[in-house]
Computed example of a mutant assay.
Amino acid sequence: MTDTDTLAATDVLSQNMVELVKGIACALVDSPDKVLVEALKDGEGTLLRLRVAPTDVGKVIGKQGRTARSMRTILSAASMKMKHRFALDIIEDETKSLAS
């Protein structure tokens, strides 16, 4: 397997994981159209950044972080099978309207 083949395989894996995280997040939130997942190469692994509407952040984190921890557990299990490390960051949208 050449470096190009390895890179292409990693891109396919990343896209599959992005779809997995996006599917889970969309099922949890009130505004699934605002769910965005991006994959960033991070050293030997891939970092997945999950962005949701500010009103939905609590839904993807859950009480005491249980929902986020569960999503990371699923991601970790899938990562082991694919032999590529994935990490998940949940990012709150910074665009908030300011009341004047």
Rank of each mutant, 00 (worst) to 15 (best):
T2S: 14
T2Q: 06
T2R: 06
T6A: 15
T6L: 13
L7E: 14
L7N: 06
A9D: 15
T10K: 12
D11K: 00
V12E: 11
V12M: 09
V12K: 07
V12R: 09
S14D: 08
S14C: 06
S14N: 07
Q15A: 13
N16I: 15
N16H: 13
M17F: 10
M17E: 07
V18E: 10
V18F: 02
V18W: 03
E19N: 12
E19H: 10
E19W: 10
V21R: 00
K22M: 14
K22R: 15
K22D: 12
I24M: 12
A27I: 10
A27R: 14
A27T: 14
A27C: 13
L28N: 03
P32I: 03
D33E: 14
V35A: 08
V35Y: 08
L36G: 04
L36F: 08
V37I: 13
V37W: 02
V37Y: 06
L40N: 10
L40P: 03
L40R: 12
K41W: 10
K41Y: 11
K41D: 15
E44W: 08
L47I: 09
L47Q: 08
L48G: 04
R49Q: 15
L50W: 05
L50G: 04
R51I: 09
V52N: 08
A53P: 00
P54K: 01
P54D: 09
P54Y: 01
T55F: 02
T55R: 08
T55C: 07
V57F: 03
K59G: 07
K59T: 08
V60Y: 02
G62K: 06
G62L: 04
G62A: 05
K63G: 09
Q64L: 08
R66Q: 12
R66N: 08
T67G: 02
A68V: 06
S70A: 15
S70V: 01
M71I: 14
M71K: 01
M71V: 07
T73M: 06
I74F: 02
L75N: 03
L75E: 02
L75T: 05
S76V: 00
A77M: 10
M80L: 12
M80R: 14
K81D: 10
K81V: 15
K83T: 07
K83M: 07
K83Q: 14
F86P: 03
A87W: 01
L88P: 02
I91E: 04
D93Q: 05
D93P: 00
E94Y: 00
S97T: 06
A99T: 10
A99I: 04
S100Q: 10
